[in-house]
């Protein structure tokens, strides 16, 4: 079990300290919480419990970077993304966009903010309205914000379709005629229509064939370069994220357990949960793959309705100690740019 917790090394990324230097913070999330109430009662419902989907999450997203958000199914990644975009109103906490608090925006100012932040969805089948033509789908943001004349909008739609590698001739087609990858491109064209700076990509490739995944990832990277986009890229496995993301945040049961630059995280994972996740990722080098030891976590993820006291990973942690069952570990910067929430790492 010694490999589970490695000593903090002053290692691979000596330059990490400089990472944030001179970079503009685009989005800042502080102690964000989203609880979904569970109600019961026949006519007058009382709140009997709450699903703590996101339970105190803090991180910064720098302009122009891709921040990965990784974790098992149900750990609250999508909820985090949606709460940042104000698709869900947070239970508490703050979200700042270019320094401006957006959790209290309403009406017109919220609508204006929506032009800046967009979302790409996981399911390419559910994310396009089956009753709308591709042209109408991509033009919808422009119509909603009353941008341009009909003709200008048509031109913009053609331009957007071309930008995502689709034939502009498809505008009169309907979603069911397209493959998963093509639909994902249509969704991308829609989210780019308003020229946003920040995009939450919620597992945009996990529903696609492996052969198509790389194409969509490449497209996302190209668009990032061309348009100067900033991504929050949500994924449930670490392997895809490595090449795409500058930094990665690992989430477990509504909380962030570790954030670091990608290379640092892959070469020097500090949190026992991250180590377990990484141990499951196959290594291309056969020699290393041979020696690779999988850390199999025991048990299931506890219910987010009733998370364990202390560190919420303590039910499955192979290296837990007494204090883990008493106090919750804080997310602290143990190395420059490398944040971990674990009593054994500090």
């Amino acid at each position: 079990m010694s490999q589970a917790v490695s000593e903090p090394r002053t290692s691979s990324v000596g330059a990490t300290a400089a990472y944030a230097d001179g970079k503009e913070v685009l989005v800042e999330v502080t102690d964000l919480k989203k609880y979904f109430p569970i109600k019961s009662g026949i006519l007058f419902q009382r709140e009997v419990a709450a699903v703590k989907a996101v339970d105190g999450v803090s991180f910064k997203v720098y302009k122009g970077e891709t921040l990965g958000l990784v974790g098992e199914s149900g750990c609250g990644k999508s909820t985090t993304g949606r709460t940042i975009l104000q698709l869900y109103r947070p239970t508490s906490g703050s979200v700042k966009y270019r320094g401006q608090e957006i959790t209290n925006l309403k009406g017109e100012s919220l609508r204006r903010m929506r032009r800046e932040m967009q979302m790409i969805f996981q399911d390419p089948y559910a994310s396009l309205n089956p009753r709308m033509s591709v042209g109408r789908i991509v033009a919808e943001p422009l119509v909603v914000h009353n941008i341009g004349t009909k003709k200008e909008r048509e031109e913009r739609v053609a331009e957007l379709l071309e930008m995502v590698g689709l034939n502009p001739y498809f505008v009169r087609r309907y979603p069911h005629e397209f493959s998963g990858g093509q639909r994902q491109r249509i969704g991308l064209a829609r989210s780019l229509a308003l020229n946003p700076s920040f995009i939450v990509a919620d597992e945009p490739i996990s529903a696609l064939d492996v052969s198509i995944q790389a194409q969509v990832v490449n497209l996302l990277q190209r668009l990032q370069e061309e348009l100067g986009l900033t991504y929050l890229f949500i994924a449930h496995d670490l392997s895809m994220v490595r090449h795409l993301c500058d930094r990665v945040a690992v989430m477990y049961l509504g909380k962030i357990v570790e954030i670091a630059e990608s290379e640092e995280l892959y070469t020097n994972p500090l949190h026992p949960y991250t180590q377990a996740l990484l141990s499951a990722v196959p290594v291309p080098d056969p020699a290393v793959e041979e020696k690779r030891q999988r850390i199999i976590l025991k048990g299931d993820v506890p219910s987010p309705i009733n998370p364990p006291k202390g560190c919420n990973f303590n039910t499955r942690c192979p290296v837990s100690i007494d204090v883990c069952f008493e106090t919750e570990p804080e997310l602290v910067e143990v190395l420059p740019g490398h944040w971990v929430a674990c009593h054994r790492v500090i």
Binding site: R82, L110, R111, R114, M119, S127, P141, V144, R190, L194
Partner: peptide
């Protein structure tokens, strides 16, 4: 959700 996200 996508429609909400664009402010519909």
């Amino acid at each position: 959700e996508a429609a909400r996200a664009v402010g519909a």
